[in-house]
Amino acid sequence: MSLSKNLYLNLIKDDRYMYLVKGLGNTLLITIVAVVVGILLGFLLAYIRTTHDKTGNWKAANLIAHVYITVIRGTPMVLQLLIVYFVVFASVNVPKIIVAFIAFGLNSGAYVAEIIRAGLMSIDEGQYEAGASLGFSYTQTMLYFILPQAIKNVLPALGNEMIVLLKETSVAGYIAMDDLTRGADIIRSQTYSAFTPLLIAAAIYLFFVLIFDSLVKKLERNLKNSDH
């Protein structure tokens, strides 16, 4: 089969390219929402853990955060997705994409928490003391002095987590969620031609990973400009 015929069969015929377009849309949507959920959750968990380590307060919250992070990081993403879909939402009819938002967001939050915590812990104790000695509360000190420095330090790691998450969403097919990978696989099952749809899907993932990567690098450079 010639290349043009192959492309026609896998993409044009019966509008099969729409599987990839819709799949890509879902993949990006899940990634973006999960990144936002993950970062919010990650900040909260990191804040709880760091505050406990620095001040000794919030023992119960710290324990919960600690257990949460350990469980999420200690079990496979696919299983977490299946559990959220088939166990947590077993008796409720929730759109699959919402399930994906929640499952991937909860997962990412645990990893982001550890990244941000490492960033917070890397900031010298003297910065906390300088903030306190001027009369800033612990929360204000965190907000104005510690977090901005910590985030700058962990930005590459956060960008990497976003890239990992983008690729990780490819397991969404386990709950019959039509993401990019599943879209390509549906085409394969219809045309019995695996090479073209699967490699196109791979190329699309790679393309977006490279875009994410360059965005993170650009942001890093911008932040560096404000530092010397």
Binding site: D124, A130, S133, G135, F145, Q149, K152, S226, D227
Partner: peptide
């Protein structure tokens, strides 16, 4: 109301 100056300066580098 109590200023403090540290051995290691502790300026905010950012």
């Amino acid at each position: 109301k109590m200023g403090m100056v540290f051995q290691q300066f502790n300026l905010f580098p950012h």
